[in-house]
């Protein structure tokens, strides 16, 4: 495929993506139906490139290389992993450059303007929970990062596909057969990876900020009945701070912002296996009282 230029408008940022990989083009059209345009002349915030590797290797094990504004932050990956590399590259781009927000590694979902943050390390079941909530009437603001407006408890959406791994891929495909899934990137450092486009409602409201009413730390445990632990504010802060990307870089502003979020929200740690029980808890015990 010849080199093509795509413009991706993902409030609050825009990306120019140059690629000669058909896999990347096809997945962009599938996952960002209303956000992607070809050969736009729009000036964008970032220029990204996802291209085939050159040299002898292209004949044996073809590679994909990611560049952000001429920088190559990651080693090349196998070409079939190219789309996942682009999504991870976009995460890196925002986390490394956007210091006007306090950013936490967290999913964000909302009912109306009431948002719940789900900060968690990989393997906690965060993305599976995120996908389930997003397709059960919750509004997705982000699967990967919470963009918190400094000195407030307001979160700005950054709606993008949900990253599913390994066993959660088949689960999500059985729950939401009508969903728009990317091709599978096999055997990445995270295992098999698929991206799932959020439902229409999340795209439609992708410019509506929300107020953080709770911070919930999810822990998936197979076969476990729902256990809920309310954290005091000091415990909530310390767990939340561990998931904040640029908290240290933002200095006193980052500190004030995190304390404001925790002061104005309830904090919980949950252990679960049944997602319906989790929804019931979130809606009845948090959203209805916020």
């Amino acid at each position: 495929m010849a080199l093509q230029n795509f413009c991706l408008n993902l409030y609050p940022f825009s990306f120019n993506i140059q690629t000669n990989l058909k896999l990347v083009r096809d997945n962009l059209y599938r996952l960002y139906p209303g956000q992607v345009s070809l050969n736009s002349t729009q000036v964008t915030d970032y220029s990204l490139s996802l291209s085939k590797g050159s040299g002898f290797r292209r004949l044996i094990k073809p590679q994909a290389r990611f560049f952000c504004d001429q920088k190559e932050p990651f080693k090349p990956l196998r070409q079939e992993q190219g789309y996942a590399l682009l999504e991870w590259g976009m995460n890196w781009t925002i986390a490394a450059n956007e210091m006007q927000y306090v950013i936490a590694h967290s999913a964000v979902l909302a009912k109306d303007d009431k948002a719940i943050l789900f900060p968690a390390p990989p393997g906690s079941g965060k993305s599976t929970l995120t996908a389930y909530l997003a397709f059960k009437g919750w509004r997705l603001l982000s699967d990967e990062m919470a963009l918190i407006n400094p000195d407030t408890n307001i979160v700005t959406p950054f709606v993008r596909p949900i990253c599913l791994k390994n066993r959660s891929i088949d689960l999500a495909k059985s729950w939401f057969p009508e969903g728009h899934f990317s091709s599978v990137a096999h055997n990445t450092h995270k295992g098999d990876v698929v991206h799932l486009s959020p439902p229409e409602q999340s795209w439609k409201n992708n410019k509506s900020n929300a107020r953080i009413v709770a911070v919930v730390f999810p822990n998936y445990r197979a076969g476990k009945e729902l256990e809920i632990y309310q954290l005091n504010k000091t415990q909530g802060f310390m767990q939340f701070a561990e998931n904040a990307f640029n908290f240290g870089v933002n200095g006193a502003t980052g500190f004030r912002t995190l304390t404001k979020v925790i002061e104005n929200a309830e904090s919980f740690e949950i252990f679960y296996s049944n997602l319906e029980e989790v929804i019931e808890f979130l809606e009845q015990d948090i959203i209805d009282h916020a």
Binding site: N232, T234, M238, A241, F247, G248, V249, G251, A252
Partner: peptide, 19 residues
């Protein structure tokens, strides 16, 4: 913190936090 659960300290020079 307003719930009396404790305090957090933040060192703006090092970015370190103690709760």
């Amino acid at each position: 913190f307003s719930d009396g659960s404790g305090c957090v300290f933040f060192n703006t020079n090092t970015g370190e936090t103690i709760g």
